[in-house]
């Protein structure tokens, strides 16, 4: 019972969503829209689950004063302050505390974290680009041409580089992306079918 009902829900949900596509009727359109709404709502609760788990983890660390508990306290304070600002001090309006924290704290940290990758990707590039074989050389050449071709100085050094860079992106790059996309698509189809038919059940987790 604990497994049969979820399997039935999966089967019915999957089959209904496939069938509705082939029936261009108002009712099927409403079912489609309704399911998308329901998914968003349930997905919202999943977020609550995730935040609950984050809070539990950091609260435990603070309670037991484990190594680095001070950072956990900072994370919890940040969470509580941001949530209070959003829920009780004017919501998401741009001039209210919530968005001010977003603009002056969250946004700069996020952008800087991603920009840090420029340094790490450079060291990764050094390791990856030590052209030891023909295919590594291909990778190296493609990356260099794209990098130089995307900046104005590239065209100043050698004017055809921009054309070559665009061609590289439009053809060899597109070709490989298409092959990978086709593989992913076929994989997704078979996985979706396995889930709907109850062959793939790992999402139910362990236990009874």
């Amino acid at each position: 019972m604990r497994r049969q009902i979820p399997l039935a829900i999966t089967f019915i949900g999957g089959v209904v969503m496939i069938i509705q596509y082939f029936i261009p009727h108002q009712i099927s359109q409403e079912i489609y829209r309704g399911v998308l709404d329901w998914q968003m709502i349930v997905g919202g609760f999943v977020l609550v689950l995730g935040i609950g788990s984050l809070v539990t983890h950091h609260t435990e660390k603070v309670k037991r004063q484990k190594e680095g508990w001070g950072y956990s306290l900072v994370a919890l304070l940040g969470l509580v302050m941001m949530a209070i600002a959003g829920l009780f001090f004017g919501g998401m309006a741009s001039d209210k505390p919530f968005m001010q924290i977003f603009i002056y704290a969250q946004n700069p940290i996020q952008a800087t974290m991603f920009s840090l990758l420029a340094f790490f990707i450079a060291s990764a590039a050094y390791r990856a680009f030590r052209a030891r074989s023909f295919i590594a050389t291909l990778l190296l050449l493609a990356a260099i041409i794209v990098m130089i071709g995307r900046v104005p100085i590239g065209a100043k050094i050698w004017s055809p580089i921009r054309v070559i860079s665009n061609w590289l992106l439009d053809y060899p790059n597109m070709v490989a992306k298409r092959a990978i996309g086709l593989g992913v698509g076929l994989g997704m189809l078979s996985t979706a079918l396995k889930i709907i038919l109850g062959i793939e059940r790992s999402y139910l987790g362990g236990g009874k």
Partner: peptide
């Protein structure tokens, strides 16, 4: 174990939706 009902709803409808989406975009269009 009751949470499986909600997970099943998300996975089942998601699989049905993705079946069509991937068939169209990743297979037929490509």
């Amino acid at each position: 174990w009751l949470s499986r009902w909600a997970v099943a709803f998300m996975i089942g409808t998601g699989a049905g939706l993705n079946f069509i989406v991937y068939l169209q975009s990743n297979v037929m269009k490509q």
